[in-house]
Simulated scan of single mutants.
Amino acid sequence: MAKEVTNKPSFEEFLNCFPPVELPFTLGEDTHMLFSKENDPIPGAIIAEYILPLEGEEETDEVTEYIACFALPASKNYHAIVYWKAGLLNYEYKLFTFDTRGNLIAEKVIAGTTYDGMELTQTMAAIQEDLLLYLVSGQSQLVKEEYTAANSTANRFQITEEGKIVEL
C-alpha cells in the first residue's frame, strides 16, 4: 500500500514564522506595521492548519488578516508566540503558549484596538524580561472626542514556567 503524501505544515514550520524578540518589548497601536515589513507573510497552509483552529474558524474571510509578530524567549517547557489579527473594527495582538508537542496551553489578547459603535478601546502591552506583561487599556467615546483617565485600566499578567498566563 502506498504511503499517503500530505503537505501539512509541521508545528516547527508554524513556530518558524515567529522570529525571537529581545525583551523588554512594547506593543502599541501601530507596532504591527514593523512586523509586516520585517517578517515574511504567514503561508496560507499554516494559517489554515494552525491559526484558524486557534481562532475557532474553519476558513479565512476577505476582511481578516494575520501578521506573525514574534516568539518570546525559548523555554524548555513551552513555546510562546504573538500574532496580530486584523478584522472589521477589531485589531488584536494575541499571545499563545503551547507545550513542546504543540498542544495549546493558554491564550490571551494582550493589546489592540476595538470599536463597538459607541466606544473605542485601545490596549498597549509591555512585556518585561521576566515575562511580566503590563496591559494598559483606555476607552473613549468618539462622539465626545476626549480621553478620560478614569476610563483606563491596568493589569499585570505573568507567563508561568508551565506556560500558563496568570493575572497578578
Score class of each variant (00 low, 15 high):
residue 29 E to Q: 14
residue 131 L to Q: 04
residue 144 K to A: 13
residue 40 D to I: 10
residue 69 C to W: 02
residue 51 I to K: 03
residue 2 A to L: 15
residue 106 A to R: 01
residue 133 L to F: 04
residue 76 K to I: 10
residue 71 A to P: 00
residue 56 G to V: 07
residue 102 G to N: 01
residue 25 F to E: 00
residue 2 A to K: 13
residue 59 E to Y: 12
residue 50 Y to M: 05
residue 31 T to D: 12
residue 107 E to M: 13
residue 85 K to R: 14
residue 125 A to I: 05
residue 113 T to Q: 14
residue 101 R to C: 11
residue 139 Q to R: 15
residue 31 T to K: 11
residue 58 E to H: 10
residue 126 A to C: 10
residue 50 Y to V: 00
residue 57 E to G: 07
residue 25 F to T: 03
residue 67 I to E: 01
residue 83 Y to M: 02
residue 91 Y to I: 06
residue 96 F to K: 00
residue 132 L to P: 02
residue 119 E to C: 11
residue 42 I to D: 04
residue 43 P to M: 03
residue 57 E to M: 12
residue 123 T to S: 15
residue 55 E to C: 10
residue 144 K to W: 14
residue 61 D to A: 01
residue 15 L to M: 10
residue 96 F to G: 00
residue 69 C to D: 01
residue 1 M to V: 11
residue 116 D to P: 05
residue 45 A to P: 10
residue 59 E to W: 06
residue 60 T to V: 11
residue 18 F to C: 04
residue 114 T to W: 10
residue 14 F to M: 00
residue 166 V to Y: 03
residue 17 C to S: 05
residue 107 E to P: 09
residue 9 P to S: 03
residue 21 V to K: 06
residue 53 P to T: 01
residue 104 L to I: 07
residue 74 A to T: 06
residue 8 K to N: 13
residue 147 Y to M: 15
residue 139 Q to G: 07
residue 92 E to V: 11
residue 134 Y to N: 15
residue 31 T to R: 11
residue 90 N to S: 14
residue 32 H to P: 05
residue 54 L to H: 04
residue 116 D to M: 08
residue 41 P to S: 01
residue 128 Q to A: 09
residue 73 P to M: 02
residue 85 K to F: 03
residue 108 K to P: 02
residue 107 E to S: 15
residue 120 L to T: 11
residue 97 T to E: 08
residue 96 F to V: 02
residue 88 L to Q: 15
residue 84 W to N: 07
residue 106 A to I: 00
residue 77 N to Q: 11
residue 24 P to L: 04
residue 64 T to M: 08
residue 29 E to Y: 15
residue 120 L to W: 12
residue 144 K to L: 14
residue 16 N to S: 14
residue 92 E to H: 14
residue 98 F to V: 05
residue 106 A to F: 00
residue 23 L to T: 03
residue 56 G to Y: 06
residue 69 C to N: 04
residue 168 L to S: 06
residue 62 E to D: 09
residue 158 Q to P: 02
residue 118 M to P: 03
residue 59 E to V: 13
residue 96 F to W: 06
residue 119 E to G: 11
residue 127 I to Q: 03
residue 153 T to R: 09
residue 146 E to N: 12
residue 136 V to K: 13
residue 163 G to E: 02
residue 38 E to C: 11
residue 88 L to A: 11
residue 13 E to H: 04
residue 148 T to G: 12
residue 62 E to R: 07
residue 119 E to N: 13
residue 94 K to E: 12
residue 165 I to S: 04
residue 103 N to F: 10
residue 164 K to T: 08
residue 81 I to Q: 00
residue 11 F to H: 06
residue 72 L to H: 05
residue 3 K to R: 14
residue 57 E to P: 07
residue 134 Y to A: 14
residue 141 Q to Y: 12
residue 86 A to V: 10
residue 4 E to N: 15
residue 60 T to D: 08
